[in-house]
Write a protein that binds this DNA or RNA. Structure first.
Length: 573
RNA sequence: CGGGGUGUAGCGCAGCCUGGUAGCGCAACUGCUUUGGGAGCAGUGGGUCGGGAGUUCGAAUCUCUCCACCCCGACCA
């Protein structure tokens, strides 16, 4: 590609709207332009990268024997009403009407359309298992789109769906897909990690996420320093603490604690060690519970894990905290003065809380706390559960090693859906036994456009983007110095350009006649991994200058045999 | 949806408080010079001051209203 024929529009100034580095750089080098909130146009440069990612994904899926298809972006309401998601999906579902007033949505995902397709196409267990996928523009009306293409409303996603006659077969494909994903992300050249995950709104049982590791990642992931264990911290199990509860050494006493409503105030004002305090959180109870509310106890320095809490049978799902008024009405004290002793609500304590002794908690009376509380002696031992969020240094739940934390950007997610959709949509096959069987399903997503942004988050420096080679928009930048004045330079560059193209190199030839500094800065900004400079200086000695994007020093390549040398650098021969 | 903020040239901003007919830098265009790390000089074009209503002789500036966008919280590839 010649620069003179390529729409490259870079800016020195950072657009004010861009918060994170990938968004800033994508705008600065013209990869994307915003049309409206959360909706972006991909320019020629951006599309090149998007296509490279897409091709890696497509190639690995094809190799694995999965079949590509393309489903409609616009989907009729009836399908979504069949699974109940027309209502359940919530505000993220963009609903539209045609001229006759019929309801449609712009597809945020394609389980319904896919399941409909398969129930009409597949009749016999002999046709299973089968896996289809597509690469499609999706629309989710995010409450708050942000970070450019990272969390856009319209985005490009690869979604795959597998169908099986039984759970075991689904499980097998699930793990195959896990391996395919591992190959895909390995091939992108990005640092990534797979983690156990919550299956969330899409439903189902087993689930893994694939994260690109980057400081700016929105998710926190936990992994063991001594085993393969890794999970999203939103669901990381905390191993049951070992050891016995210490015997009481203190008397229970009531202390006046005016204006003390937080753990910090308690610790700072009364010298209580924070590990000897308990936080009491009041949440709405599940519908079939006798009480309206449930009290959850965690140690003062711990954070309640909402996902764990809402999975408790006693607790309403989704999790809803009681209002100050609810708490006053049912307990007679404010939220800053609660504790297990004398509490009229059902209590569930985090497992480590049950091992505490001589601890401090609110007295369920404003401006008073109990000190020296001990289980059994002062209050009945509570029901326990794993309630807190895991932190760095916790024992790994698999019993091997200690947890470490990292930040990640979720770029892939695989689920075992089971029969959640096939049952409500009556997707059945005839089995060996001549009877109908509901198909088992798996579903597997990759955020293609998000990968582009994540790649930049992980690979950039002061000068711009440093693309991993497999997804770079071009492999090589060819920069002639002052070609307008120098015949030799121009001629050598033109010849080399043609030879490189013939050799199959994706080369960006900067024939724009700009000052060298401008070219260098542009090439570094858009992150082309390899750079070749042709100038009078080098030609005198028959040399070209070569540099990799991440290097700071040039090396020399003889003009004679330069193409072979470059192919070698690019790993193409 | 709640809380905060911003809308003035393609981009980044000043002007608004204290009303008087719109400006700076970058980018773009023309010419000349320059050419190994975002050049210099001279010149040129480009604005419904987010929209509407109001106050006023006069509104970018004051008032009301609507809209868009951005940031902080709960969702997700």
């Amino acid at each position: 590609m010649k620069a003179s024929k390529f729409h490259l529009f870079t800016t020195r100034e950072t657009p004010a709207e861009a918060e994170i580095v990938s968004h800033q750089l994508m705008l600065r080098c013209g990869m994307i332009r915003k049309l409206t909130s959360g909706i972006y146009t991909w320019g020629p440069l951006g599309l090149r990268v998007l296509r490279k990612v897409e091709e890696i994904v497509r190639d690995e899926l094809n190799k694995a024997g999965y079949q590509e298809m393309l489903m409609p972006a616009v989907q009729p309401a009836e399908l979504w009403q069949e699974t109940g998601r027309w209502k359940k999906f919530g505000g993220q579902l963009l609903k539209i009407q045609d001229r006759a007033g019929r309801d449609y949505c712009f597809g945020p995902t394609h389980e319904e359309v896919m399941t409909d397709f398969v129930r009409n196409e597949i009749r016999s267990y002999k046709q299973l298992p089968i896996t289809f996928y597509q690469i499609q523009t999706k629309f989710r009306d995010e409450i708050r789109p942000r970070f450019g293409v990272m969390r856009a409303r319209e985005f490009l996603m690869k979604d795959a769906y597998s169908f099986h006659s039984d759970h075991q077969c689904m499980d097998k494909t699930y793990w195959e897909m896990y391996d395919v994903y591992t190959r895909i992300f390995t091939r992108t050249g990005l640092h990534f990690r797979s983690v156990e995950a919550d299956s969330g709104a899409i439903g189902g049982n087993k689930s893994h996420e694939f994260h690109v590791l980057a400081e700016s990642g929105e998710d926190q992931i936990a992994f063991s320093d001594q085993s393969d264990y890794a999970s999203n911290t939103e669901m990381t199990a905390v191993a049951a603490p070992r050891g016995e509860r210490a015997a009481p050494t203190e008397e229970l006493r009531t202390i006046d604690t005016p204006d003390t409503h937080t753990i910090d105030e308690l610790v700072n004002g009364y010298g209580v060690p924070i590990e000897k305090t308990i936080k009491t959180l009041v949440v709405h109870a599940a519908d079939d519970n006798e009480a309206d509310f449930v009290a959850l106890l965690v140690r003062g320095d711990r954070t309640l894990n909402p996902l764990k809490a809402e999975k408790l049978e006693q607790v309403a799902s989704p999790l809803l905290f009681a209002s100050d008024k609810d708490i006053h009405d049912s307990i007679g004290a404010g939220p800053g003065s609660l504790g297990p002793v004398g509490l009229s609500l059902p209590v569930v304590a985090d497992q480590e809380v049950a091992l505490m002794s001589d601890f401090t908690a609110g007295a369920n009376s404003d401006d008073q706390h109990y000190f020296g509380i001990n289980w059994d002696r002062d209050v009945e031992s509570p029901l326990t559960a794993d309630l807190r969020t895991a932190v760095e240094g916790d024992n790994s739940p698999d019993g091997k090693g200690v947890l470490q934390m990292a930040r990640g950007i979720e770029v892939g997610h695989i689920f075992q859906l089971g029969t959640a959709y096939s049952e409500s949509m009556n997707a059945v096959v005839l089995g060996e036994d001549g009877k109908s069987h509901v198909m088992h399903m798996g579903c597997y997503g990759i955020g293609v456009s998000r990968i582009v942004a994540a790649a930049i988050e992980q690979n950039n420096d002061e000068s711009g983007i440093c693309w991993p080679e497999p997804i770079a928009p071009f492999q090589l930048a060819l920069l002639p110095m002052n070609a307008k004045k120098s015949h030799r330079v121009r001629e050598a560059a033109e010849n080399l350009y043609v030879e490189l193209i013939d050799a199959g190199v994706d080369v960006f030839y900067d024939d724009r006649n700009l000052r060298p500094g401008v070219m260098f800065n542009d090439m570094e900004l858009i992150g082309i991994p390899h750079r070749l400079v042709i100038g009078e200086r080098g030609l005198d000695s028959g040399m070209l200058e070569y540099r990799q994007r991440k290097d700071t020093e040039n090396s020399e390549i003889p003009l004679d045999g330069a193409v072979d040398a470059i192919l070698h650098k690019l790993g193409m021969n």
